[in-house]
């Protein structure tokens, strides 16, 4: 590929992907709360309404359940809607349409139809928005067969995975960490896709596999630099998709390093870390483990408002460094 590569923010990369999808296919359109002239709560749609008009960049009333249902119905009947939730927390208002309808219609109808809807969820803490605007609920949706659930961690993946999601015949849920929106990175111009269901080894290492998702990928990479200076060589696996999960990449990595740590922002228990750990325990990689598996996840509490408390509820770089040291040097 000789496409021009520029530095774009994660939000710009998503916006560019949506514009390309709409240019390529007139069935693609955007729906969401305040995504038109306002540009979206996080300015992800930005000025797209000026380019594509109010008929393809549709401001919905504050009706998450109904809006999600309209997107599902439009997808079922030939359109390719991209539905933005203003905050991922508001998925709770639309669970019926996501879980009972979008995920199951194809199955219930014996494969006669598909529901090619894309839903975007600005997720995560760190913005001081407190308990109802800071959650990481991706594992909730990851538990539902019929959905695909992705968490791109870079601007490059944000664009490529969104374009893959639009091309996908099934419902794809995209969880975008709000603190990533301003992160910059190289993004090629034009159309490309990054496959759904494929993890990415972001850093190769010998001593420890860190499986991370979303914003924790960058934190793990930053921790790995510090650990390298101490002689600990960390492999960072960016899971990218939580359903369907790329088991083989994780298994192969653990077989190489013999140690596994999972780092994710969502509440630690009953989540992605449990799934990855159990998957390794059930695989041939189990025999390669030299130490117990470690999970670093969110605290068992709602996200607090106070900035120090807020930081304390989710894994930070020093937490990853400490846990990695303990794991590799056998303190555990």
């Amino acid at each position: 590929m000789d496409a021009m590569v520029r530095e774009l923010s994660y939000a710009q990369a998503i916006q560019e992907a949506m514009a390309i999808a709409m240019d390529m296919d007139e069935r693609v359109f955007l729906m969401g709360e305040d995504i038109g002239v306002y540009g979206g709560a996080f300015q992800v749609t930005g000025d797209l309404v000026e380019r594509f008009g109010t008929e393809r960049v549709i401001d919905t009333p504050i009706s998450e359940l109904g809006g999600a249902g309209v997107a599902v119905g439009a997808a079922l009947t030939g359109m390719r809607p991209i539905f933005e939730f203003q905050f991922s927390d508001f998925a709770t208002l639309a669970m019926e349409q996501i879980v009972n309808q979008a995920a199951k219609i194809r199955f219930m109808l014996g494969g006669e139809v598909s529901v090619p809807v894309v839903m975007r969820f600005p997720a995560g803490s760190g913005t001081g928005a407190a308990a109802q605007h800071s959650q990481s609920l991706e594992a909730w949706l990851g538990h539902v067969p019929g959905l695909k659930v992705i968490q791109p961690a870079t601007p490059y993946d944000a664009k490529g995975m969104l374009l893959a999601a639009v091309a996908d015949p099934d419902p794809v849920m995209i969880f975008e960490h709000k603190l990533l929106y301003k992160m910059k990175g190289p993004v090629p111009e034009g159309y490309y896709t990054v496959p759904i269901g494929k993890a990415d080894i972001r850093r190769e290492g010998r001593d420890l596999t860190v499986v991370a998702t979303s914003i924790m990928v960058q934190k793990a990479l930053d921790a790995a630099v510090v650990l390298e200076a101490e002689g600990i060589d960390v492999e960072v696996v960016d899971l990218r998709t939580i359903r369907p999960m790329d088991k083989q990449t994780v298994i192969d990595s653990v077989k190489k390093t013999s140690r596994l740590m999972c780092v994710y922002e969502a509440v630690k228990t009953l989540g992605i870390g449990a799934e990855v750990s159990a998957m390794i325990a059930e695989s041939e990689a189990f025999d390669y483990l030299d130490a117990p598996i470690v999970r670093l996840g969110g605290a068992e509490t709602p996200i607090p408002y106070n900035p120090e408390l807020e930081k304390a509820t989710v894994p930070q770089i020093p937490d990853i460094i400490t846990a990695a040291r303990d794991l590799v040097r056998g303190a555990r």
């Binding site: 359940l65 109904g66 809006g67 999600a68 249902g69 309209v70 997107a71 599902v72 119905g73 439009a74 997808a75 079922l76 009947t77 030939g78 359109m79 809607p81 349409q97 309808q101």
Partner: peptide, 10 residues
């Protein structure tokens, strides 16, 4: 009901 509205939007 919302699905029907989505079909009508299509």
């Amino acid at each position: 009901i919302p699905i029907a509205v989505g079909a009508a939007l299509s």
